[in-house]
Design a protein around this nucleic acid. Structure first.
Lengths: 232, 232
DNA sequence: TGTACATCAGTGAACGCGCGTTCACTGATGTAC
DNA sequence: TGTACATCAGTGAACGCGCGTTCACTGATGTAC
């Protein structure tokens, strides 16, 4: 009964996992555009229509991959943040940023899938929102901890009044109790981080920059200063 | 003779232009993935093979569009830089950044084409390099002018030694005679700018940020300060 | 415990779609004498 | 200036490809009595 049902359910879960795993492999190899249900089924040694027992459509499979990617990246960032707890704030910021970069470089196509141009005709469902937020929350956590331990020194900021309510709402939403100027700078650092990675990974710096790692480190350290992170 | 040859040549140029124009229209509507030679020929009221008289392949058409996009954006940035010549450096920086944003918003798919995830299987040829550099050079020009007019105050910077030669080479390449720390920060501002735009245009800030324009302006102004731009 | 029945994973064929690219051709347009 | 020839734009048919998705089916596996 429960056990036997369990068997079927487990088989089902395993097959679904195999499908997603194969899809991820193809994504990693050829990018999102090259991902097809037929190719997945082919590789799994199964007729193409069989896949539809497990996945409603190509878009649903894409969604699963997107969630996977966000979760994977989010976990990496969270781990680094946790592992560096207690260390000086700027150091932690750099560490988490590095973890993000390491993940991005190791998962170029996954990175492109979630941070590149949107897949045409695909609308990301709500299920992706929470996983997507994980990296950002890990970064924000570093700022929050810094504020709590006196390692945050708000810069002399003049934020336009029009922005203040929105920034306050945003800060509250992520449980961050800092000056609006710090919120702006954290946002700036956030976009900065991913801007660098996109340029590096999408080839925009080709021919111009060689030592990406070093440049990344310095830039990210500068951003920490700009946010106002300073060791106690 | 020359005139008559000219007639044929002109017809040729016009048809080619019509093809590119129609391709651009389709790009703007559905993005790069939705661009097909067949659709272009259909819209032009011509049999699909006819297009091959003017364009060698789909990839070549893509290249033309990429060059067009870079040139269009580059021209917008250059114009703004030129129009603001003589004004205070931070103001100019913001003005050019705004021009870039305005272009990006008005040309979302073109933006995605050149700054989004690379088109799989497509390798950008050398012809795109120079047009691609135009925006960057316009931004750098503002920094150069600032340096020349005493509006650049290099921040107390500690750039890793390993980076110095590369930064020096890079600066020389774009005829920028400033401290390594300024180069780093200019690069940072550059990636920052496009990072913000990508996040805004690719929907990464959906639900989190409403007042994009205001946030953009403040952030970009902050970046100007970080670079070291200050009115004389 | 053994059997009749229900569930469900996987099959195979098909529909309808659109794409990039090639090739031999026709007929108009420009060219050279 | 008028005519024979060359150039070249556009045609139409075809090749070969792969895709997403549907549907009626078979046969194995689990389930309830």
């Amino acid at each position: 009964m429960a056990r036997l049902q369990g068997i079927r359910e487990r088989a089902r879960a395993e097959t679904t996992a195999a499908i997603v795993a194969e899809a991820r492999r193809q994504l990693a190899e050829q990018g999102a555009a090259g991902l097809s249900l037929r190719a997945v089924s082919r590789e799994l040694g199964v007729v193409s229509s069989a896949v539809y027992r497990y996945v409603a459509s190509r878009d649903e499979l894409l969604t699963l991959l997107i969630i996977d990617a966000y979760d994977d990246l989010g976990a990496a960032a969270e781990q680094t943040a946790a592992a560096s707890a207690g260390r000086p704030a700027p150091e932690r910021w750099v560490a988490v940023a590095r973890a993000v970069r390491a993940w991005a470089i190791g998962h170029r196509h996954e990175y492109a899938l979630v941070y590149g141009s949107p897949v045409p005709g695909y609308e990301a469902p709500q299920d992706t929102v929470a996983p997507a937020a994980r990296v950002s929350l890990a970064l924000i956590g570093v700022v929050r901890d810094a504020a709590a331990s006196g390692q945050l020194h708000a810069p002399p900021g003049d934020v336009p009044v029009a922005l203040v309510p929105e920034l306050a709402a945003l800060a509250e939403q992520v449980d961050l109790d800092v000056a609006p100027a710090v919120v702006v700078r954290t946002l700036a650092a956030w976009t900065q981080l991913f801007g660098m990675l996109s340029f590096e990974l999408f080839g925009q710096t080709k021919g111009a920059i060689e030592h990406h790692a070093e440049l990344f480190d310095t830039t990210v350290a500068t951003m920490a200063v700009t946010i106002g992170l300073r060791p106690a």
